[in-house]
Design a protein around this nucleic acid. Structure first.
Length: 448
RNA sequence: GUGGCUGUAGCUCAGUUGGUUAGAGCACCAGAUUGUGGUUCUGGGGGUCGUGGGUUCAAUUCCCAUCAGCCACCCCA
């Protein structure tokens, strides 16, 4: 049979896995540094915990897992006869693949509410699945990297998460811009313009500001039958920006606006933005489509590259309300690891990473040498130094080729002369230097 | 879900106004080179031209369908 992969999925070669792990390791290290704890949840969840959490569109993009056993016998015969997929679904599938990490986290919190000390800080790096049409940088299976804090409304965490973003991208040597905004400021803008009833449409239109700019926003607002004066008053605020005194005055006319301004001020005080590696700025055009955000929202964009956001997040009150666990506020961020990977690849920001961990390859000339080399390899491995021997004594050309393909830093030639002198001839693959080493000397060389 | 582009060797791609045996570069294997690879030279293996159908004396080429991949929109990471 011919080999193939399901649409939107991919294999990763050793070199790719090493690069991905480079990113994941920095994320893990940084999350740990700030006291976040790792959790993992199953790839499959009960379908009813997933359905209805991501909107109608989300339900369609959920991968459903077909029931085991004689699933047709137990299916809703009427729905099948009518060819009504939606109606037949509950009787055909009771499980689905997770769509994101937030809903499983909320489920996890609700189930473990008596065990977990609040505030609970967790991070999670796992794949999620979406039956989306694949595209550049978009797959049906991809990793999400989330850090969230549940059970506290303290703005310390907003400040902390901004700092985590900053530190991670500094470690990756990827210059970014961190944009923040507040849901209550968006509400205040809508109230000021008298379009509070169109709030969610307004945020959706605003969300496009980045892509289509001001004209796109205006077009969207016009299609909502918003009159020209209203649009103009909104544009005035958006053009002036957050730091303009007029803007602040307009926003503080409403209670929501006052609160939003107050909270952003507090986050800034707690955050010490001047001390960060990357710029942080309040951007009133930042909307984030997701409707469950209720407080501060944030997004990270690369500077100097034409690419969308590398991550986003925000605060959502009542994270776990859908699971009958009220009063838990959450704030979190997510990293778009696949995009970060593509960007770093494009910019050549990955450090040199060998394909194999092996530090030295022993190259035997004959059977005797092979046996001799095996003993050396064992001694190195016993000391934690990754080493291997070429499995058969063949011509050096072939053995060198192997070492080159794996980008190994050293090779050791093992022949009769070396055996008799109880040494190996070690060649530095980078410099081409070659000299004899005893076991102790070799261990010292490779131990660094 | 809507629209567009592309499927030729392991990879990147030529090609044929429809005509005998489909090419190149890289990669791979062997030799020049029985203790020193990455350069060079010589030779070699490898293709049902995505799949199915149609038009034709003749299809990799033209037409239709289908599948897959890519790109844009929607949405999103």
């Amino acid at each position: 049979m011919k080999p193939g992969l399901p649409k939107g999925t991919r294999d990763f070669t050793p070199a790719q896995v090493r690069k991905r792990n480079f990113i994941f390791n920095i994320l893990r290290e940084t999350f740990e540094l700030y006291g976040y704890q790792p959790i993992e949840t199953p790839a499959m969840e009960n379908l009813h915990t997933l359905m209805g959490k991501y909107g109608d569109e989300g339900d369609q993009l959920l991968f459903k897992v077909l029931n085991n056993g004689d699933f047709l016998a137990k299916a809703d015969a009427e729905a099948l006869a009518e060819k009504d997929s939606r109606k037949a679904l509950p009787s055909l599938s009771k499980r689905g693949l997770r769509y994101d990490l937030t809903v499983p986290f909320a489920r996890f919190l609700s189930m473990n509410r008596n065990e977990l000390a609040m505030p609970f800080k967790r991070y999670q790096i796992q794949p999620v699945w979406r039956a989306d049409r694949p595209q550049k940088g978009r797959f049906q299976e991809f990793y999400q990297c989330d850090a969230d804090v549940a059970g506290s409304t303290s703005l310390v965490y907003e400040a902390e998460l901004i700092e985590i973003y900053d530190r991670v991208f500094a470690k990756l040597r990827l210059p970014v811009k961190i944009r923040i905004n507040h849901r209550k400021l968006l509400l205040a803008m809508a109230q000021f313009a008298g379009i509070e009833s169109l709030f969610s449409e307004f945020t959706t239109a605003l969300d496009k500001w980045d892509k289509t700019g001001e004209p796109g926003f205006v077009r969207d607002m016009e299609s909502l039958n918003t009159d020209a004066d209203t649009i103009q008053s909104l544009l005035q605020i958006l053009r002036d920006g957050f730091d303009h005194p007029d803007t602040r005055e307009k926003l503080s006319r409403s209670e929501a606006g006052k609160q939003g301004l107050e909270e952003l001020k507090e986050i800034q005080l707690l955050g010490g933005w001047d001390d960060l590696y990357n710029p942080v700025a309040v951007d009133l055009t930042l909307a984030r489509g997701l409707s469950y955000y209720t407080g501060c929202i944030l997004e990270v964009e690369p500077t100097g590259f034409d690419m969308g956001s590398l991550g986003g997040g925000g605060r959502y009150d009542d994270l776990t309300g859908i699971f009958d666990y009220k009063g838990i506020s959450g704030v979190g961020i997510s990293f778009g690891a696949e995009r970060i990977y593509d960007l770093m690849e494009e910019a050549g920001l990955f450090p040199p990473l060998s394909a194999a961990a092996t530090r030295i390859l022993f190259m035997p000339f004959d059977r005797e040498d092979l046996i001799y080399a095996r003993k050396w390899v064992k001694q190195l491995i016993d000391r934690g130094i990754p080493a291997e021997v070429y499995p058969e004594p063949t011509k050096l050309k072939k053995q060198f080729k192997y070492a080159e393909n794996l980008q190994l830093p050293y090779v050791a030639l093992v022949g009769e002369r070396e055996r008799k002198a109880e040494v190996v001839a070690v060649k530095n693959q980078k410099t081409g230097e070659q000299k004899d080493y005893s076991t102790a000397e070799l261990i010292r060389l490779l131990k660094d």
